[in-house]
Design a protein around this nucleic acid. Structure first.
Length: 226
DNA sequence: CTCCCACCCTGGTGGC
DNA sequence: TGCCACCAGGGTGGGA
């Protein structure tokens, strides 16, 4: 599954290509769960909208639309976002299988967004856990309010990191994966960070010493910036 | 508030 | 060798 830095890479790459483009047509595969709340409503909500910017919170991609609405997109474990120009140039990323250049669209393509200039954005997902959804400002804020500290920014501070472990009897790993506390760390990165900091992932979070928390904090920073 | 668990889904794995 | 039960995995939501 894509981890945080890869989602950020996808965001940056797509922003270069998609900002300013207008959606001409939206296609959704039959019984497509990722198109929410339903394929018909999703198509109606997105058709004709212009993309004015792309942001990210945790592993959630937020496409700003021209009418102050937002297209939220989450790849979960097996999602891919593939952008393709008429000439065939392909960028994007996410889950490595199937390879982005092995046909786009392919059998896992759940949503196809056509732009007025002939380029396309494909949302591929094997397991159908990912989703795309158009929301208004209020709904977007509601969704974003559930996210915790954002790693990869200067808001990720050691002092806040210490607080997160207070009164937590569950495993260190569970705390690090807790999105309302720290947004965007995944299973693999959490394991790596624990390994690097020489802390057992299943150790109760409130049993860590201050030195261990600091070591863990540094390990996380090292890993997400690699 | 924290904790815990079921759920979403499909491909890969391991046991027989 | 073939079959199938089982499980991974990010995130959410509800109940205790």
């Amino acid at each position: 599954m894509p981890e945080l830095p890869e989602v950020e890479t996808i965001r940056r790459d797509l922003a270069k290509k998609l900002v300013g483009k207008k959606v001409s047509k939206v296609k959704v595969a039959k019984k497509s769960k990722p198109a929410q709340p339903s394929p018909a409503v999703f198509i109606k909500n997105l058709s004709g909208k212009k993309i004015t910017g792309i942001n990210r919170r945790g592993k959630l991609l937020i496409f700003e639309l021209s009418n102050n609405e937002f297209l939220l997109g989450h790849l979960k474990m097996t999602g891919q976002l593939i952008y393709k120009e008429p000439q065939g140039k392909i960028i994007g990323g996410g889950h490595p299988y199937p390879k982005p250049d092995v046909g786009a669209p392919n059998i896992y393509t759940r949503i196809t967004i056509n732009f007025h200039d002939g380029s396309n954005l494909f949302f591929n997902d094997q397991r159908l856990f990912g989703y795309m959804r158009v929301v208004d400002e209020a709904e977007k804020e509601k969704v974003l309010s559930r996210f915790g500290i954002e790693p990869l920014t200067k808001n990720f501070k050691l002092e806040d990191f210490h607080k997160i472990f207070k009164n937590r009897k569950v495993a260190v790993k569970a705390v690090l994966l807790d999105q309302p506390k720290i947004a965007g760390l995944g299973n693999i990165y959490v394991d790596e960070a624990c390994f690097l900091a020489q802390i057992k992932p299943n150790k109760p979070a409130n049993k860590l010493t201050k030195a261990q928390r600091e070591k863990l904090f540094k390990a996380i920073n090292k890993i997400i910036k690699e």
